[in-house]
Design a protein around this nucleic acid. Sequence first.
DNA 1: ATTTATTAATGTAGATTTTACACTTACATA
DNA 2: TATGTAAGTGTAAAATCTACATTAATAAAT
Lengths: 229, 229
Amino acid sequence: MLNSYSSADKVLLAVDCIIFGFDNDGLKILLIQRDFEPEKGKWSLIGGFLKRDEVLDAAATRILNTYTGLNDIYMEQLHAYSEIDRDPVERTISVSYFALINIENHNAELIKNYHAEWFPINDAPNLIFDHNEMVENAIKRLRYKTSIKPIGFELLPEKFTMRQLLELYEAILSKELDKRNFISKINSLEILNKLDEKDMQSSRKGSYLYTFNKEKYEEKLLNNFVLNL
Amino acid sequence: MLNSYSSADKVLLAVDCIIFGFDNDGLKILLIQRDFEPEKGKWSLIGGFLKRDEVLDAAATRILNTYTGLNDIYMEQLHAYSEIDRDPVERTISVSYFALINIENHNAELIKNYHAEWFPINDAPNLIFDHNEMVENAIKRLRYKTSIKPIGFELLPEKFTMRQLLELYEAILSKELDKRNFISKINSLEILNKLDEKDMQSSRKGSYLYTFNKEKYEEKLLNNFVLNL
DNA sequence: ATTTATTAATGTAGATTTTACACTTACATA
DNA sequence: TATGTAAGTGTAAAATCTACATTAATAAAT
């Protein structure tokens, strides 16, 4: 009977984390080499099992930390994957989570100690189980999110140039954007502070640095703005 | 250890179905009265447990059919809910699914036999567990979906008037729409067939009936159109 | 001191899309 | 044949989006 708890089947519930990162080389994804069977040695998303006394969000955070040392990463739930044989060992349903982080802010050392590695999004190895599908879906969501939130700022250093911001969006959307139109659209959101300071790395002229204005952003967010790039 | 299947905790996995329907009285939701403890007699989403040899999509379909007799309803996965005590009997994670159906096409008799009932979306009873939250999130998704798919057609009779279509969208978005602008936006999609036939119920003049042109719609869908109402 | 090379910064006109808005038409009923 | 009711229809102004090229600032080289 359906209305009976006792006769219902229990299953393993896993969480898999899709961590996107950005640095000067573009958009990347964080993967680990499995250190246990099955598929030991193959590349995989960062994953683990939900504990009985833990909510899914907490499991995702714990698992990410366990395998990478990363802390305080806000992840968003994406989708539950439930194909019968997706994990050959035992019936396992997996819930995917994703996040976007700034690679440079997140101690590369720690990640190294844990055997996690960044791969360019367009040059990543084949993954175990249904992890490739999970990543594809996460990329779609990431693209969608750029249109409703200025999500990219989390991926940049605190002070950044317009060019960096442009290149970030180009990497996420994988298309070229018109520089002038991009700048005026971003400016029209009024969520950036233009500093007096310039970044002199990139050119002789130097380019102005900006910071993200969190207060103004929160304000905007209430109005459900849309950003068409 | 995380890398051990045998030591991982197993949990119950449930599915809850949020079924939206539309008829001349507006947008409704399908609920049932629990016939077992806990919360027996209270109103609830249509839900049940995943079986070991079943994928989530199939479980949602089976459970919906078991409690309502409804068949061939395409549902879409929404979100996994995992609060520790969301179900007081036993640790249960629930994955929500939602669908939109045409109330008149789906034999009210069958639903009656199964004690399921339609409630106006704005006048539904309080629900058990976290089901209210599930419904709220489903409504948000429903609104979003109107902007990227002409999703509403599934809710109307095969032949419908522009007014019916307009009222459907107004119910989903819960805002008034300009009649002329609505019609021209819908027409510009070129996914309707205007029939020679008129519906004489609504007025002396009568209003033209339309059908949904599935082929043209499939064509459009490839181009990821957006419908800004 | 002057030239050169490099990237940053900036504005606009035309095209497209969106919005706001009111009168006429067709028909059944009285 | 007059009346009442909802259906059907078009446009001008505003807003947004797109495509596009020149000048400015500076460091390095001469």
